[in-house]
Design a binder for these strands. Structure first.
Lengths: 162, 162
DNA sequence: ATTGAAATATAGTATCG
DNA sequence: CGATACTATATTTCAAT
């Protein structure tokens, strides 16, 4: 589905603006993208309906919310039986502190981004949740001790020519 | 700064609700958290002013925006001179396709999350942007070929007792 | 097919109790 | 904190390009 093909430069500007500030009023947005309010609102609704805009969220301070620790965790499975994989992914989905989980090429099968309230808290999570899953071959944790960049703004460019 | 100490159960509910839907109207939010609109709005403004709520953003479909590829890239520096580190981090900040960059414990110095329009596009980025930085010792790329979970919702729990 | 202007319905915000 | 009053925005309708 080449949704992109249906997007023009104004849609791209709308997406950029709403990533920058998801609570822009339609009036502000319309002015920023050079449209009057009604067509602007219609475009936003279309982008939402098409799934290009998937939702809106508040960005919160991890530390202020009590989660000062971020770890990136690489996991290998010993056994990729359908049961193990399903049990693993189900647990991932249920566990709130696991924010992201990607299936990866390379040395690890999965990479997880996990937040924790403390090192103890992290240890508990690993011991009681992750290590108990069947078929885990290895768990390699790296802690983030600094954040150089954290952008939620995906670049949006409309295809030119080609 | 124990901002947390200043948060109560209602603030936590506000944060949860606004992470789930960053465009909730104040009326909807007030009803959801069991407050009338004016104190609800006041709390939201306070959370924003305190930096607990850092902003709002639209969540967009990466593929629909033309970035189907996500890679996690571990980088080691050969040389941690202040100049190299600054040049490195400056380039990271300038490069839109690099969404996140953490300073990590363990085998790598940095881990980056990078998006790309194609494998060629990624190769260009590595060759023309990353490899050219001074003092890079190694670059190890893993591609995400599946997303098991992608949550932007940080759990929020108010300290109990203790 | 998409825009823009105007009108109505709804929400945001400040004041005061 | 809650109710009210006031202002601003969202959203629909319709005419025009």
């Amino acid at each position: 589905m080449p949704i992109l093909a249906l997007m023009d430069a104004i849609d791209a500007r709308i997406i950029r603006a709403l990533q920058r500030d998801g609570r822009l009023t339609n009036l502000e947005l319309a002015e920023e993208v050079g449209l009057s309010p009604s067509p602007c609102l219609r475009r936003v609704r279309n982008l939402e309906a098409a799934g290009v805009i998937q939702g809106y969220t508040a960005l919160v301070d991890q530390k202020a919310c009590g989660y000062p620790i971020t770890c990136l965790v690489r996991i290998r499975l010993a056994n990729h039986s359908q049961e193990n994989v399903q049990a693993f992914e189900k647990k991932i989905a249920e566990t709130e502190a696991i924010l992201d989980c990607y299936l990866m090429t390379g040395g690890a099968d999965y990479e997880l981004r996990i937040v924790a309230r403390s090192l103890d808290d992290y240890e508990q999570l690993v011991r009681h949740t992750i290590q108990k899953l069947p078929g885990i071959a290895s768990i390699e944790t790296s802690f983030a001790y600094g954040v150089v960049k954290k952008s939620r703004i995906l670049p949006v460019r409309v295809e030119k020519g080609a």
